[in-house]
Computed example of a mutant assay.
Amino acid sequence: MTIEDRRARERAARRQLIVSTARSLAEAEGWDAVTTRRLSQEIEYSQPVLYKHFQGMDQIAEAVAIDGFGELAEDIGTARAVGGDARDVLIRTAQAYLDFARRHPSVYDAMFTRATSLDFAADDTPPALQSAFNALRDAVAAVADDRDVDDLTEVLWATLHGLVALGRTGRIRPDRDRQRIVVLVDQMCR
């Protein structure tokens, strides 16, 4: 292994350490607790080292978000892989989305509620974002018939996001996910 290869590997490992530490702190204490000063203390590198990898906290949160989109795509893929009829697959897909948001609230915030420069539905959309949308889209396509699949997917996504937001703030009845998802999917299957 060349010195350049070793340095590149070490640089990638430091970058991942920064991202995973930011994620852990956010999950434990919320995003307000995640600062470059705190991160540098936690990973035992100086703040200038952080700035060699990221311009600031927004870019670190975006890296957490991108990882989250990849994980969401995997969770949806796992839910879809069980098989069954299109309606059941879409129900499991929607449930996987809600479950992900509950298990990883700070990651979900980085993905969907924090200000970000990540582009959605653009030529330069990161692959992980595309994968997450396409995982939803593939489940929707099976029930779309002659309707626009992207429109239906965006409606599903927006509705699921609304359920997450309303559930987090206690504005909808708890423990009714399954019933709400069934209503939503039955409307989409018409």
Rank of each mutant, 00 (worst) to 15 (best):
D58W: 00
D150Q: 08
S106I: 05
V34A: 13
S20D: 15
T78G: 02
R168I: 03
T169C: 04
R38I: 14
E4Y: 02
A101Y: 02
D150I: 09
A26R: 03
E10F: 11
L136P: 00
R147P: 03
V89F: 09
V149Q: 03
R11L: 08
R102S: 14
L72E: 11
R180H: 01
V140T: 05
L17N: 04
R180L: 13
R178K: 10
F112G: 04
A81E: 12
A101M: 06
F100G: 00
L166T: 08
T78M: 05
L25Q: 08
V164W: 07
F133C: 03
T153V: 08
L166G: 03
R9C: 01
F100E: 07
T159W: 02
R87M: 12
L72P: 07
A8M: 07
A79I: 09
T21D: 11
V82A: 14
G84R: 12
D32I: 05
G56H: 12
R7A: 14
A96E: 12
A63V: 04
M188F: 00
D145E: 14
V143L: 09
A63R: 02
D123L: 13
D177C: 08
S131K: 09
L72Y: 06
R103D: 14
Q187W: 01
L184P: 03
E27D: 13
L166M: 13
T169S: 11
C189I: 00
R137N: 11
A13E: 15
E27A: 09
R103W: 11
Q179G: 02
D146I: 00
L152K: 00
V143P: 01
R137F: 14
G68C: 10
A158P: 00
A121Q: 07
S46N: 13
S40Y: 04
V82T: 13
I3E: 15
E27Q: 15
G162V: 05
Q130F: 07
A144F: 06
E71S: 14
L184K: 10
S20P: 04
G68H: 04
R15G: 04
A121F: 15
M1Y: 04
A132N: 00
P127H: 10
V107T: 15
I60M: 05
T159P: 01
Q130R: 10
S106R: 08
L25M: 15
D5H: 08
E4V: 09
E29N: 10
G167A: 00
M111K: 08
R80S: 15
A96M: 09
V155F: 05
G30T: 10
D177S: 02
A132T: 03
F100W: 12
G56S: 10
A79L: 08
L25W: 10
F133W: 11
E27K: 07
V89G: 07
H53N: 12
I181W: 06
A135D: 04
A101I: 06
Y97C: 11
F112C: 10
R168Y: 06
R147Q: 01
Y108S: 06
D124A: 05
M57S: 11
A144Y: 10
R103I: 08
R80P: 01
R38Q: 15
S24K: 06
R92C: 08
D151N: 10
T93E: 10
E62G: 09
M111W: 07
R180P: 01
R173C: 07
W157E: 07
T35M: 13
A165I: 03
C189T: 03
R147V: 02
R6S: 08
L25V: 14
Y45P: 03
